[in-house]
């Protein structure tokens, strides 16, 4: 209850700001139209019109909620014209999850390699870091188009972009985690003459778990960003990226905002899923969260 009040206060503040902003941004166009048509109007008329305008510069929350309801419940999920929003969420979610899974495998493999082989660190690490300095917006269309020409369409090219983004925080976080074992704990394992494998499974990996899960939360969120970005150059076929693109083509601002809300909710669910996995894994191995 004590936490709910400040959160609600902030929410109310932003709603007020939003509705005020909708009036400020949408009013000039309406006034312009009414002046040309010679329609008489009052301030109350103007506010009403600004809050319910089609193709508004800034749509209002109730318009977005109405659009979300309409696009989720008024069409079947499998629709010939792909009008159901959940269908697009599903498309984006699947390439996000596949890309995240690839990123996880690659990221963990790189981290384990780097920690165990000095040469890998000096040869691979600069490339790993450099890979992330290239703007994803520049590389995503090329990857999607090239893979498309090679016959790879659908989930796979988009998943590659997600994987490209998500392996990085996993590698960096896990390398840090695997190296964070206490010198005393390492000495202890040495007094037992533990093998490298025993050292890894019984000390390094458990020590790295908190680092790994923090990285996974970052990774799954940017995996979603990668999937959405990868959907832009496909020409708006399906997915939340496509919804953003067609929305901006046709000036359907409400559709853009609905897609944004859907992406945010999807992101929350994915990060929440990682948090749940953390609780199960850490719970099983014991110890405080």
């Amino acid at each position: 209850m004590n936490r709910a009040v400040p959160i609600a206060a902030v929410a109310v503040f932003f709603l007020v700001l939003w509705y005020a902003g909708a009036v400020a941004l949408n009013a000039p166009e309406i006034i312009d139209l009414w002046t040309r048509n010679g329609t008489p109007w009052t301030t109350s008329d103007l506010v009403q019109a600004a809050w319910n305008m089609d193709r508004a510069v800034l749509p209002t929350p109730h318009q977005i909620v109405a659009d979300l309801y309409h696009t989720i419940f008024d069409y079947p999920i499998i629709d010939v014209r792909n009008r159901n929003l959940l269908y697009h969420v599903g498309i984006t979610a699947s390439s996000t999850v596949v890309g995240f899974a690839i990123g996880l495998v690659v990221g963990v493999a790189l981290a384990v390699g780097i920690v165990h082989m000095r040469t890998l660190e000096s040869s691979i690490m600069p490339w790993v870091i450099m890979s992330q300095t290239i703007p994803i917006l520049a590389i995503a269309p090329m990857v999607v188009v090239i893979l498309g020409n090679m016959g790879f369409t659908g989930v796979f090219p988009k998943a590659m972009i997600s994987a490209y983004l998500s392996f990085f925080p996993i590698t960096i976080g896990l390398v840090k985690g695997l190296r964070s074992a206490d010198p005393l704990a390492l000495d202890l394992m040495r007094t037992y003459s533990a093998t490298p494998a025993q050292l890894f499974w019984r000390l390094r990996l458990p020590t790295a778990m908190p680092f790994l899960f923090t990285s996974l939360k970052v990774a799954v969120a940017i995996s979603l960003v990668g999937a959405i970005v990868a959907e832009l150059p496909t020409g708006g076929v399906a997915g939340l990226g496509a919804r953003l693109l067609t929305g901006s083509y046709y000036g359907q601002t409400v559709q853009i905002w609905s897609a944004l809300v859907a992406a945010a909710v999807l992101s929350l669910i994915l990060v929440g899923g990682v948090g749940l996995a953390q609780r199960i894994v850490v719970g099983r191995s014991g110890g405080p969260a």
Binding site: L184, D187, L188, Y192, S193, Q198, P206, S285
Partner: peptide, 28 residues
């Protein structure tokens, strides 16, 4: 394994119970 070593700090593994900390060397 002729000696057992006790360090300045307990160096217990926080993700293991007391019993599983004691059995760590035995597992190894």
């Amino acid at each position: 394994r002729i000696y057992g070593y006790v360090f300045q700090a307990p160096a217990l593994q926080p993700w293991r119970t007391v019993e599983r900390n004691v059995t760590l060397p035995l597992e190894i």
